[in-house]
Amino acid sequence: MNNPTTPAAIELRQVTKTYRDATALDNVSLRLEGNRIYGLLGRNGAGKTTLMSVLTGQGFQTSGEALVFGQHPYENDGVLSRICFIRESQRYPEDFSAQRAFKSASLFFKHWDQAFADQLVEEFQLPLKRRIKKLSRGQLSAVGVIIGLASRAEITFFDEPYLGLDAVARQIFYDRLVEDFAAHPRTIILSSHLIDEVANLLEHVVLIDRGRIILDDDAEAIRGTAVTVAGNASAVQSFAAGREVLHRESLGSLASWTVEGRMTNAERAEAAELGLELAPVSLQQLVVRKTMAATDAVLDTDSELEVLK
């Protein structure tokens, strides 16, 4: 899989991107193999969109190297024609209808599937002839989702593609994504805040915080790596001894801690002996805990620096 002769679909080498006084990407190195569904997760302003902009040639890094199919994407039509980037607030020319937007997309993307696009139009109940600027927020998102799916580009970036889509429309998106990916494997980078909804679709997860990657692992490797232990506070404390604690909550003599580490059967039995409840931690909870733990670490360093001054 890490065959050095075939370039990765995406590779970042120590990429930094600064805007005036803000650092959007801070020395990011990342290698993503092709034909997988990736989750690009992180808070607003963490650097997700900047990362995708650099990879799609819509921005240029301040330093470092960004490679797509082993080449620089910036002003490189050979690479850009194989990439589809659906932005959160994708803009279209003033007078375009959805139909016209699909027509343009069909000319640009060589694997465009018109029958698939037609099916999606039907499922999303999208008015084809109305001007895009007259569409509702959800319908506008549907236009982007349809282009992203029907283009079948070798790499497709979905940057929060679901704004205004209701739960039913989002489920249609996820279902068609899984089916079409199974039939036509390609690289999908899905940036989303609705982590619980997409968690099971992801093969690999990249979590960004403040321009740095704080988690880069297979979803299956992450699943079950943290557990919430609840019960008598002293029992929780003794059970959690020697483990990384991501989060602590307490209520009177009761405590509920989120600890890292996969539980063995022996440990489960031990927890039961102590009268403790073990509950699984979802990917969304884990992302929240990890991000908050990273924030605490940054704050701690900052205050230590303050003390040193």
Binding site: R36, V178, E179, F181, A182, N200, E203, A219
Partner: peptide, 15 residues
């Protein structure tokens, strides 16, 4: 098939 399992359980086909 694995793709049918993936679609039914709404999970990644590789998984």
């Amino acid at each position: 098939s694995t793709n049918e399992f993936a679609a039914f359980y709404r999970i990644n086909p590789a998984t």
